[in-house]
Design a protein around this nucleic acid. Structure first.
Lengths: 202, 202
DNA sequence: GATTATCCGGAGTTTCTACTCCGGTTGTCA
DNA sequence: TGACAACCGGAGTAGAAACTCCGGATAATC
């Protein structure tokens, strides 16, 4: 499924050496863990330490810190898009939609600084992020349409609203990270709002 | 109403000199504007420039950048608490509650980095912020209880849930800052969820 | 108006971090 | 197994930003 990574640049590049490939994966994994735990402001040196490699190695694979952040974000967004696609096969469209929503929010609750990735996906800053963001929006849009057709989600909202609510709910979940009951009740409010028929509120 | 500011420290301090008082106010105002426009990561020097004073002056009034940020946050939180108190006199409790909610979110839409202040109020990091945060929670709690007694807000949620939704909705609004229609529809979803009766979602 | 405590300005110091560079090491291929 | 290209580590560099310090200016007081 995944072709072997190649050195950056257009056209005919060589495949990466085995150790390089291994280190790249380690760095990415370490970066995700560190950024999640302490925010995106932690130093690149800390990421290198966590990955068990030198700083030079980190910067060779990701030429700037921003590129590293972007790579982490893209990884997460792609993972989410895949989850959404998987849920497209579910029998109950409404349940599929709300399950996905809850799962995204659940990730945000424990994994800090993830909201930024979601927000990024919505506004398309960088090129590669944009591509993966499109992928996620496509998948989420499909889930939403199916749920609306089944009458499980109000018909008067679109993808932008859902995306905004996703970002907001993730932030809210991060905010009440300690208390699972509060988080559940907060999510219930949003879900009830998403189900509400448009004529409900005079 | 406001007693003249005094030099920091416990016990018998002298009142500030007139120019010192003026500069302090200027710095605070400039900091709020700059942080709102470019985020809290802008340099203290930029704040000083905007305020038309030297860097030394900024650091004399606010010994660290963190103290400056905190002062800005406290100012905003206090302003919100006052707004909430003012709305306690409104005749329609439900309208008062939702008006306040929308107003807070409206601030966040244009004024960046304000969500952080709200979040801070919820978790009580610093001492002075904690005090003002308590004040805001008290006022918001009163608005909520009145609205619930009037049947305008579902009874199965408490202040923590509302606070989380406020933080989340503010983040969502910031995210769709460009599009007022999307923001309005997103807020409608949250409001409908807040109104929904608990047995609605069997 | 003279005196003095207070305050201001901004150059300088310290610290932190992203990023570079190259001698040494390791994987790859014949 | 030998030769070479690719890769690694981490000391070193550059730049930015928080914070300090003191000579000069200014407001308060008599």
């Amino acid at each position: 499924m995944t072709p072997p990574k190649r050195a950056s640049g257009p056209g005919g590049d060589r495949p990466l050496r085995a150790d390089a490939l291994r280190n790249r994966a380690r760095v990415l994994e370490a970066a995700e863990a560190v950024f999640a735990a302490h925010g995106t402001s932690v130093s690149t040196e800390e990421v290198a330490r966590r990955a068990g490699v030198g700083i030079g190695t980190v910067f060779r694979h990701f030429p700037t810190k921003e590129a590293l952040l972007e790579a982490v974000f893209v990884t997460r967004l792609a993972r989410l898009a895949a989850e959404a696609d998987a849920l497209m096969g579910a029998e109950d469209p409404g349940e599929a939609f709300f399950t996905f929503f809850a799962r995204v929010v659940g990730h945000a609750a424990t994994k800090n600084a993830f909201t930024a990735a979601l927000a990024e996906a919505g506004v398309d800053v960088r090129a590669t992020t944009a591509e993966t963001g499109r992928e996620l929006r496509r998948a989420l849009g499909a889930l939403l349409r199916r749920a609306q057709d089944a009458g499980a989600v109000r018909p008067d909202i679109g993808l932008p609203e859902v995306l905004a609510l996703l970002v907001g709910a993730s932030q809210a979940a991060e905010h009440v990270a300690g208390d699972d009951e509060v988080r559940a009740r907060t999510l219930t409010v949003v879900f009830d709002g998403l189900r509400a028929s448009p004529d409900h509120a005079g």
